[in-house]
Amino acid sequence: MPDKSDIPSLPDRIGFLSTSTVGHAGRASKTIAQKGGPYVLALIMVAVVWQVAIVALNPPSAILPSPSKVARTFIEELLSGELPINAWVSLSRVTIAWIISAVVGIPLGVLIARSRVAEKLIDPVIELFRPISPLAWIPLAILWFGIGESGKIFIIFIATFFPIVLNTVDGIKRVDPVLLRAGQTLGCSNGPELFFRVMLPAALPSILVGMRISFGTGWAAIIAAELVAANSGLGYLIADGMEILRSDLVMVGMIAIGIIGVLVDSIFKQLASRIA
């Protein structure tokens, strides 16, 4: 039997792709300043144009409040607790609905992806309901759920459900079959084992994308949902502000919605890059 020393040894780094680990780490640690820079610049530009419009057109505050007025109102609402409380309420509504969507939608997506029968039966139903906007469900939501939290959560559920299901189906279907074979030859002896150890992790990036998109659509629907006899939330803040012609409150609400939307989305992106 030939022994080790007969085989010529070659350096291990044959074909090593990355040139250095420093380069790789450097890419990930772009500072917050670098990432946020463009956004701050954009904000400043908007504020400048806005202020110019105020000076040039001199509109009543109800139609277009000045940037300084909006900023003052923003800080007022922030300090009084109105803004954080309403933001928290809206955020928790969306989060709860989104979790329900995930709990229902991911297993459903898995089922559709793996069973032809299920796909033939369930898929047409999904395609029929998908185009119906969450807003169209509002009257029924009031009838069925009354004015409590469940009505609003129902609306957000409608908004969040479909991206999760569809992305789960896609993710599972596109799992490379050779990975499944590898799993089988490495001891995954039954369906559940193969599913949890190979199929699900392989599909996870897609599923996470679905969840990220879904949170976004849910967040966008929060205004509509909070027209369902709400007495709290950012959507309520906006509707209420409009009623008393406080456009500054309306804009504060809009800004809060925008900021939270961006923050949540970037948290998702961070998570995704850690996992995938």
Partner: peptide
């Protein structure tokens, strides 16, 4: 399939969500 009949594939079939060591431990 069975673990007693291991297989090495042309396209490697490494699990991308696992580290190298976790792959080998699988």
């Amino acid at each position: 399939p069975h673990i007693q009949r291991g297989m090495v594939f042309q396209d490697y079939a490494l699990f991308p969500w696992l580290t190298v060591i976790d792959n080998v431990m699988f």
